[in-house]
Amino acid sequence: MAEEKVLEVSDSNFATEVLESDIPVLVDFWAAWCGPCRAIAPVVAELAGEYEGKIKVAKCNVDENPRTPSEYGIRAIPTLILFKDGKVAHQITGAVSKNQIVEVLNKFI
């Protein structure tokens, strides 16, 4: 299943898995109570499979990991942030279509 290719990241491993990653990382900030997060989850899972080796796809639960989202000023979910070389390269707020995400990802590979 594509779902398993989405890496779960937390406050404790965010630096090593995301900021210090050799390849760009797309992080999906989500929560169980957020409907659009649920709507976008299958799209994120597909992207994880399609971009394997080129872009790491991760998800971060904002309830269980309050520090990271607040560091990035996240006040709306789902928020997708593409990190490159430890920095925010692009941010998408809300449940957008796969094509819109793909357009962004292709600029960074």
Binding site: A31, C34, G35, P36, C37, I74, R75, I77, T93, G94
Partner: peptide, 16 residues
């Protein structure tokens, strides 16, 4: 300010 205080979904963003 969309996503930074402007929201169109209370169930998504209310808990913040």
């Amino acid at each position: 300010f969309t996503g930074k205080g402007v929201s169109f979904c209370a169930t998504c963003d209310g808990p913040f």
